[in-house]
């Protein structure tokens, strides 16, 4: 990869208690690109985002964002770093006690001293970008799932972050909303000149919008490449994942003992 890297993840190991999640992961997110990190459920994709955001510390290795090692930052340094990041949570995580407008305005009010008129203009611009300027008076409970996701997206980019992280942005969306959110991710990234990381298991949608794809399974990177390379890959895991096959390198059965033994069937004598 030729262009400069915004995020570098080097030999990162991470374990919850003694259960290893990531085992020596190396990833590079170049500036200005949209990168997808894919893998089955529970393979540590969300953990990866938390490591980048500084919510978790790697057991070994490091995560470097914009030249700074995240887990070596102090509290203030980390908070300064987080101001330059945006994260879209799985179900939006809108603040349910505030209106759409206040949700988008939230970070501007907390982190800047902008006068209310400017905040108003900014909020309407952000909402307009996601096509929901008309909803600014509604409460999050009055929005559909797809609309909530888009409002959350507007809130995520409220302060024009350099790095936008998406945690399962496509989960639970209908096909239309899915396409809308997918296109927004691409357009916002290019409009803001940001770098985006999309953690997802929605292969088809991501293949359409991203520049580069990493596959993670069992805590290691098993495949990587551009969408074209991935589509035509004949690696068994990637093939199974892209085409959604039931059995393959990712087995249908959770690891367990012998079936016959479990059912107390005596071997034939």
């Amino acid at each position: 990869m030729s262009s400069q890297a915004l995020v570098e993840i080097r030999d990162v190991n991470f374990a919850y208690d003694s259960r290893p999640i990531l085992k020596g992961v190396n990833l590079t997110f170049p500036k200005g690109k949209v990168i997808a990190v894919m893998g089955g459920s529970g393979c540590g994709k969300t953990t990866l985002l938390q490591l980048i955001g500084g919510a978790l510390k790697p057991s070994s290795g490091y995560v470097k964002v914009d030249g700074q090692v995240i887990h070596e930052l102090d509290h203030k340094g980390l908070y300064d770093m987080r101001r330059r990041m945006g994260m879209l949570f799985q179900f939006g995580a809108l603040f349910t006690d505030m209106s759409v407008y206040d949700n988008v305005a939230f970070q501007m009010r907390e982190h800047t001293d902008l006068p209310e008129e400017i905040i108003r203009d900014l909020v309407l611009m952000k909402l307009h970008a996601v096509g929901l300027r008309g909803t600014h008076n509604l409460m999050p409970a009055e929005l559909s799932g797809g609309m909530a996701r888009r409002v959350a997206l507007a809130r995520t980019v409220a302060l024009d972050p350099m790095l936008i992280m998406y945690d399962e942005p496509f989960a639970g969306l209908d096909p239309i909303s899915l396409t809308v959110v997918g296109n927004l991710i691409r357009r916002l990234n290019d409009a803001l000149g940001a770098t985006s990381v999309v953690v997802t298991h929605d292969v088809q949608e991501s293949l359409k919008i991203v520049d580069y794809i990493y596959f993670i399974a069992d805590g290691v990177v098993v495949a990587e490449g551009t969408p074209a390379e991935i589509s035509s890959s004949d690696k068994p895991f990637v093939h199974q994942f892209v085409h959604g096959e039931m059995d393959g390198p990712v087995p249908f059965h959770y690891p367990c003992g012998d079936y016959r033994q479990d059912l107390n069937l005596r071997p034939e004598r």
């Binding site: 980390l78 987080r82 101001r83 945006g86 949570f89 799985q90 179900f91 603040f95 349910t96 970070q107």
Partner: peptide
């Protein structure tokens, strides 16, 4: 609903 985590991520 991850609102607390979202806040933390917003510094």
């Amino acid at each position: 609903t991850e609102q607390i985590s979202a806040m933390e991520m917003m510094a």
